[in-house]
């Protein structure tokens, strides 16, 4: 089995850490990238102790797009797999009024992720191998009043990943789009999530690993979401606009 490294962008997030652990368990070295990465020392020790793999910490700011080239050059080795778990949910009502806040949310979910993945994609293409995993969201499947600013960023990210997959399909580079529904994480702490539709970061991470191994293109986590979103996408707009969902 390949034991090339996995680079986790958003290495502080529950989803990013959970995915790092699943790969580490399979013998892959881990590169955790996040802002103020020095305070992930405890996570670094934990992953190294549990799985006996190399773990590196790398300072990374998704919104500081000018720094991304230098960040990639600074990595000890070009990773075999990159997972982008960067994102920000925000509060819809606040971002409707505070446009600066809205910009940050859209940049965190689209501009930052896309910029760093563009650089890595070129490097992977040149090498002729690599796996790019983007954690997008079901919120990107159709704009809804309750979360369309976050959703718009994710919709852009989903479209970008699809295009990149199309471009790199013949170049040995695989792109996987992950569309989680509700995930119980720090981001959703305190929200009342419906149990049947909610998963946790560990389950999600195992599903992502499996999907990447099988070269799946796009996966919903918890298959019920595929059905839910099929219905939501197909409701005619003249009805949809009056719904509260």
């Amino acid at each position: 089995m390949s034991s090339g490294a996995i680079l986790v962008l958003g290495g502080r997030s529950d989803i990013g850490l959970a995915i790092a652990k699943v790969y580490a368990r399979e013998g892959h070295a881990v590169q955790l990238a996040a802002r103020n990465v020095f305070d992930l020392e405890a996570e670094k020790a934990d992953i190294a102790l549990r799985y006996g793999v190399e773990v590196g910490l790398h300072e990374f700011d998704a919104l500081d797009v000018e720094s991304h080239e230098a960040f990639v050059t600074s990595l000890p080795a070009l990773p075999e797999t990159v997972v982008c778990a960067v994102g920000a949910l925000g509060v819809q009502e606040e971002s409707e009024q505070d446009h600066a806040e809205a910009r940050i949310i859209m940049r965190s979910n689209f501009e930052g992720p896309v910029n760093i993945l563009a650089i890595l994609a070129n490097a992977f293409e040149e090498r002729g191998s690599g796996v790019i995993i983007g954690i997008s969201s079901v919120a990107g499947d159709r704009g809804r009043a309750t979360n369309y600013i976050y959703g718009a960023g994710k919709a852009g990210f989903t479209a970008y990943l699809a295009g990149m997959r199309n471009r790199l399909a013949t170049k040995g580079v695989h792109v996987l789009t992950v569309k989680p529904g509700f995930v119980a994480t720090r981001m959703t702490d305190g929200m009342d999530l419906p149990e049947k539709l909610t998963t946790d970061a560990d389950t999600l991470a195992r599903a992502v690993f499996k999907a990447a191994k099988r070269r799946r293109n796009e996966v919903y986590i918890k298959s019920i979401w595929w059905l839910v979103m099929l219905i939501i996408r197909n409701i005619p707009e003249f009805i949809f606009k009056k719904l509260k969902i």
Partner: peptide
């Protein structure tokens, strides 16, 4: 208080 997120190994 759930301790499920206070779950790191520290040293061996």
């Amino acid at each position: 208080i759930s301790t499920r997120h206070l779950n790191r190994m520290i040293r061996f």
